[in-house]
Nucleic acid binder design. Structure first.
Lengths: 338, 338
DNA sequence: AGCCCCATTTACAACGTTGGAACAACGTTG
DNA sequence: CAACGTTGTTCCAACGTTGTAAATGGGGCT
């Protein structure tokens, strides 16, 4: 294995602690010894053993990011930003996938992680607020995403209700009258759906329109396609659909096009997430773009605060920004070079 | 913090080592003490401190997965499988993003990771085989993806040449005659491109067709769209295109459709990777599907072997399987429910 | 010269864990 | 009944690091 402080100390002819002081940039080291030690350090290619350092300091320098699924584009993009933000504190990020299952989410919270991570950024799907509040593990925790607010832990999200209302208003502004919400979930699965549904309802009600909803189990393309197919077969199909995320919207788009109808002429489609796929679909997808870099940054910052300050502080809520991305799936396809 | 072995030992009225023996399932412990200890363990909610265990054992139980970018769907999907495979050995996976830059790739190899990880699964883009061979860090290393074979480390990939030839043969089998390869890269960027180009050439040459190539810098949608646009503007545009990955193909599809042409009637398109997006694009994307679970499993297994056996063994090459996924972008669009 | 102060350096202990040796308490065997 | 092996348990050391306290040594002061 690599050289230890002791090896370096022997080579440099000083004590272990002096080497440690040099490594850690302690000020009171004479230029002469510092030079000697640094020479020895490079000659042996010394690298601190972080297991030992962490044991001593009670920190691991690793945080966990627990997500439903890494291969959902939204979470993949988010992960990129979390890893970047964590790197600024020289933290490594381990990723855990829960698949949204209650069992796996409990495992994550319970600390399958043992003492291997200092903190956890968690984007839960199934687990309830009460259960979160009751957890015994004292690892620092930041919740990420569309959860019940005012929960038992620090929390970062965009204002889902407002975002949903805004995008619905956009569809209304196009002159559409039969506007559906696609992505409604049984309330037992908490979080996203009720908030986005609430925003949709606000807009629909404000303009005296009729509510149309389509339920799904999971936020995946296949479910979006299936739900859209059901909507199209209904007696009076919608002329616009707000899908609760982009994957649902892309699945829905596929279903509309496959049925021989046009987007947006026959059915306008909007999503939420602004995943890259939607910028290159045909037509391109109108959506709400959460500021993912800001979300990730806020989550990491909150975790940093928790880890630094002692844990007494009450939980904090932070809202990241978002923007409407109006693209062809609502305003029309314009052939030509990109 | 949590309870330590010592706390448990005190409560149970035994020595620390006895508790350790119980925790580690050592056989020679009397039922009576085992019971006492287990009771104390659960009462205190004991969790081993892995920093300490790892310090003692010289292992961290964490491996790193270094990728160009996590938000490229192919890598996101691959990561999922790597995490799953690693979980079987109770390993955690930290993910590092290199963005394909030489600087970041060097950092990763040099071991920014210090002793924090036991091994590294690395999907390099820029770094050369010689530089890989010359690395000083002795962390176990497995290369993943389309690299120069017979390199200096264990390596897992699919047979890129054969896969490229197979998919090109498929395009030829459709009766297309002007078949382009989209995704050629300057040879300074090693790996994928030459192998896939070689397979394409084998098929083209075998049927006496003319080679048409389009270069890109990176394997992203935007570059695929731009390269496709160039091809369409050429004096005699292709009637089929093998794109070296699915993102390029989806960008190309967007460009074809945006120019008013049809896929596959005017231009047939095929990719490679089988990312989920391609299963829901319109038309759906014909592609080569590498067995990602097998790739990930092999990489993890090789790492396991390296870590267990002492490191003398010569590097090992493993090939994962793949399948052709023939979809609408080559065989035609069939309206109807999905 | 004797003293104290300061900068520099060191010795020691501790973080929580586990391998190995040592030890105690048995029952078995000659 | 003594010597022995087996089983269960404990003691000690060590992994590599850093905080604390103490030691060392030189310079300036009285």
């Amino acid at each position: 294995m690599g050289a230890s402080l002791r090896d370096v100390a022997e080579l440099a002819g000083v004590s272990v602690k002096t080497v440690s002081n040099v490594v850690n940039g302690y000020t009171h080291v004479s230029p002469a010894t510092r030079l000697k030690v640094e020479d020895a350090l490079t000659r042996l290619g010394y690298r601190p053993n972080l297991s030992a350092r962490n044991l001593r300091q009670g920190r691991t320098g690793v945080i966990a990011l627990a997500l439903p699924e890494l291969d959902a584009p939204y979470f993949a993009e988010l992960s990129r930003f979390v890893i970047q933000a964590a790197a600024e504190h020289r933290w490594l990020v381990v990723i855990e996938q829960t698949d949204g299952s209650l069992r796996r989410e409990r495992q994550v919270l319970d600390g399958v992680r043992d003492h291997r991570v200092d903190g956890l950024i968690f984007s839960p799907i199934s687990i309830g607020a009460d259960e979160l509040a009751a957890r015994t593990d004292d690892t620092a925790l930041v919740l990420l995403g569309e959860r019940i607010y005012d929960g038992p832990a620090d929390h970062v999200a965009i204002d889902n209700v407002r975002a949903a209302r805004d995008i619905t208003e956009h569809l209304i502004g196009l002159g559409r009258t039969r506007i559906a919400a696609l992505g409604v979930q049984d309330q037992s699965v908490s979080g996203t759906s009720p908030l986005r549904l609430a925003g949709y309802r606000e807009a629909i009600a404000a303009h005296g329109l009729v509510e149309i909803t389509a339920e799904v189990e999971r936020y995946q393309r296949a479910e979006g396609a299936a739900a859209m197919t059901r909507l199209l077969r209904s007696p009076s199909p919608p002329d616009a659909v707000f899908c609760f995320n982009d994957l649902l919207a892309l699945g829905a788009m596929r279903a509309v096009l496959a049925s021989g109808l046009r987007v947006p002429e026959d059915v306008a489609l909007a999503g939420l997430d602004d995943i890259e796929d939607g910028r290159y679909s045909t037509p391109t997808l109108t959506t709400v773009a959460p500021d993912k870099a800001q979300l990730a940054g806020m989550a990491v910052d909150l975790l940093k605060l928790r880890l630094d300050g002692r844990s007494g502080r009450p939980p904090k809520e932070m809202r990241a920004g978002y923007r409407l991305m109006i693209r062809e799936s609502t305003t029309g396809f314009r052939p030509g070079p990109i």
